[in-house]
Amino acid sequence: MRFLAIAVAAAVLIALPLVTTGYVVYLANLLLTFTVLCLGMHIVIGETGQFSLAHAAFYGIGIYAAGIAGTTFGTPFPVSILIGGLAASAIGFVIGMVALRMRDIYLALATFAFGEAMQWVFLNWNAVTGGPNGLRIAPARLFGLELVTDKDAYPFVVATAIAMLVLTVIVARARLGRSFRAVRESEIAAQAMGVPVRRTKVVAFGISAFFAGIAGGMFTLFSTYIHPDSLGFQTTILVLTMVVVGGLGSIGGAVGGAIAFGLISELLRQAPSFQEIAYGAILIVFMMYAPKGLFAFLADRFRGARHA
């Protein structure tokens, strides 16, 4: 079943730029970027149980760092993306250090405040971010190749998303992933089992921010403009909703949630009169009937049908 799903996904990803317009490819690029954002949030919230609400800030740091590296210094885009990831990660580690002192709602509020503060920085650091006028980003370049259209960027966006997905699986299956889950379940029990709780939390924040920064770098592959308005709390809430709808604590849920909710959001754009009601209805239905997320719900149903 899993192999069939992977084969179908691969076929869709390969066929997409051949059989669709640039508009659909743009949506695919955006959804894959949000998928990486969701994977990052999955690591810190789903795996480690740390309620972080600063994801849009790390995403923004990634966009600005990668965008400025490529536009001002002409770095090849793989380097720019890595710079975006590392810049976000460095700040993520610092936030992780601060987060050691807090938990639950206090941690959520502190990270929320950090996100708001970063949006203020994006808006007011005119010399670097362009401030309220936004930042124009030069098309990504690599050895003379310039990514001008969505279709040009698509293979690299897909490759980066797959690489980040594989990295997530590796982390989840490694000792580090088990440490994350141990901390999530019980910090005291984890400590008793020899898990370095403080270090694990900091690393979770750092890795999660790295993913968000990489997602920011991916954004610069197919977009030439960023405005701080796009990096507010609503973006963090959108990513959180994607992760919750897909299924908190599962990699498939994070990926599926990003794609499913992203597609729903785009489809609802065609029905403006009903979209707010539809959004609310979808979330209420999920919370009532599929609290573990869409993919856990489908898996339960599939198993039930097989046993019947």
Binding site: T21, Y23, V24, L27, D229, S230, R269
Partner: peptide, 21 residues
């Protein structure tokens, strides 16, 4: 007619749909 939701990502999606599709 497309809904751009007053949001950059949605507006760009709407523009690309109108132009390319």
């Amino acid at each position: 007619l497309e809904d751009d939701r007053c949001n950059a990502n949605d507006l760009v999606a709407a523009v690309k749909k109108l132009v390319e599709q």
